[in-house]
C-alpha cells in the first residue's frame, strides 16, 4: 500500500481523553495510509476508536480529548502542526466529513440552502447568487428533485435519506481529496442505505476523492470498499485489500467478525459470536488487547503485537497469525 499517489498517511496517531476517572486511550497508535481515490472501510465494534480516528484527522476532537502524539500527513503536510486558521480552510474544502445521524447533523433553524451557501461563500468567495445556483447544482447532483425549490426548505421538511443526501452534497461541495464518512447510513432505513452509499461511491469515484468509511457493518464494507482496516480497543489490528481481509483474515478478531456475518448458505444456523466484551479503555492491560477474548491466545501475547506484513498488501497485529 505505498506509492506516489498516497494522499493521507497516519503514523502513530494517539488520541486520549483525560477524564476524571483516568486516561481513556481511545486511539492508541494507529498507522495507515490511503491512496488517491481509495475507499477504505474502517470497521470495529462501538468504542473501538473508529470515529475518534476520523475526527482526529480533521482535528475536531472536543475536550477533554487531545491528540497526544503522531502525524497525519495529508497532501504532504502534517495536519497536526498546521495553524487552526489554515486547518479551517482545509476543512470542508480538501477534507470533508459526513456524520452518522442526518437528523442531527444539519442546523434545524436555517434553510438547507443557506447551510450549503455559507460554506461556498467561505471557501470560494462566491457571490450569494452564484452560490445559490451552485447550491442547486449540488443538490441535483445528489439526486434531490426540484432542487431550486428545496433550497428554501428546512431540514425537518426532508426525509432522513434526503437529509443525508444534503449532508453529502455539502461535504462534496468543494471536491475534497478526502471524505471521512462516520457511519453515514447507520441511522437510515435499510432500503435507503444502499442508495446513499451507491451515491457516495459514485461521487467519490467521479471526483477522485479518497474515502474512509467508518462502520461496524462488515457486509457493507465488503460491498463498497477497496481496502479494509479493522480496529480494536484503539489499535489497528488488521489492514489490507478487501479480498485479502475478507477471504483470508489473519487476526482472530477479524476472523470472528467475518464469521458473525449472517450468511446466505447456512440458514437456521446460530450466528457465531465473539465471546466477551471489549476491555475498558481506561487502564488497558499491556500486551494484545484482544488477548482475554482470543481463542488462540498464548504466552507471547502479553507483549503488544505491532502491525506487520503478513502478505502482499496485507498486515495484521497478531503473534499467532496463520495459526488460528
Amino acid at each position: 500500500m505505498s506509492g506516489a499517489d498516497v494522499i493521507l498517511e497516519i503514523k502513530g496517531l494517539k488520541t486520549h481523553f483525560f477524564t476524571r476517572r483516568g486516561v481513556v486511550k481511545a486511539v492508541d497508535g494507529v498507522d495507515f495510509s490511503l491512496r488517491r481515490g481509495e475507499v477504505m472501510g474502517l470497521v470495529g465494534e462501538s468504542g473501538a476508536g473508529k470515529s475518534i480516528t476520523g475526527f482526529s484527522i480533521l482535528r475536531l476532537i472536543d475536550e477533554p480529548g487531545r491528540i497526544v502524539d503522531g502525524e497525519v500527513i495529508f497532501e504532504g503536510r502534517d495536519l497536526l502542526t498546521v495553524p487552526e486558521a489554515e486547518m479551517r480552510r482545509l476543512r470542508g474544502d480538501r477534507l470533508a466529513m459526513v456524520f452518522q445521524d442526518p437528523q442531527t447533523s444539519l442546523d434545524p433553524v436555517f434553510t438547507v440552502g443557506s447551510q450549503i451557501v455559507e460554506s461556498l461563500v467561505f471557501h470560494q468567495s462566491l457571490s450569494p447568487s452564484q452560490a445559490g445556483s451552485r447550491a442547486a447544482e449540488l443538490l441535483r447532483a445528489v439526486g434531490i428533485p426540484d432542487a431550486e425549490k428545496r433550497l428554501a426548505a428546512y431540514p425537518h421538511q426532508f426525509s432522513g435519506g434526503m437529509r443525508q443526501r444534503v449532508v453529502v452534497a455539502i461535504a462534496m461541495a468543494q471536491n475534497p481529496a478526502l471524505l471521512v464518512a462516520d457511519e453515514p447510513t447507520t441511522a437510515l432505513d435499510v432500503t435507503i442505505q444502499a442508495q446513499v452509499l451507491t451515491l457516495m461511491r459514485r461521487l467519490v469515484r467521479n471526483h477522485g476523492t479518497a474515502m474512509i468509511l467508518i462502520t461496524h457493518n462488515m457486509a457493507l464494507v465488503g460491498q463498497f470498499c477497496d481496502s479494509i482496516a479493522v480496529m480494536y480497543a484503539g489499535q489497528l489490528i488488521e489492514h489490507g485489500t478487501k479480498e485479502k481481509v475478507i477471504r483470508d483474515p489473519q487476526h482472530p478478531y477479524t476472523q470472528g467478525l467475518i464469521r458473525s456475518i449472517p450468511g446466505r448458505q447456512e440458514r437456521c444456523r446460530r450466528l457465531d459470536q465473539i465471546p466477551g466484551m471489549m476491555p475498558n479503555l481506561i487502564d488497558l492491560p499491556p500486551g494484545c488487547p484482544f488477548r482475554p477474548r482470543c481463542p488462540s491466545a498464548g504466552g507471547d501475547c502479553v507483549q503488544r503485537p505491532l502491525l506487520r506484513p503478513v502478505g502482499l498488501d496485507h498486515q495484521a497485529a497478531c503473534w499467532r497469525r496463520n495459526r488460528p
Partner: peptide
C-alpha cells in the same frame, strides 16, 4: 450537538458557529 460539529467540519469560523448558528438555536 452534531450539527455544531458538522458546521466546524465545513470549515466555518468559531465565531460564525457560535454567534449565528448556536445563538439562533
Amino acid at each position: 450537538q452534531d450539527y455544531i460539529k458538522f458546521l466546524r467540519a465545513k470549515g466555518l469560523s468559531e465565531r460564525r458557529v457560535v454567534l449565528v448558528h448556536a445563538l439562533k438555536n
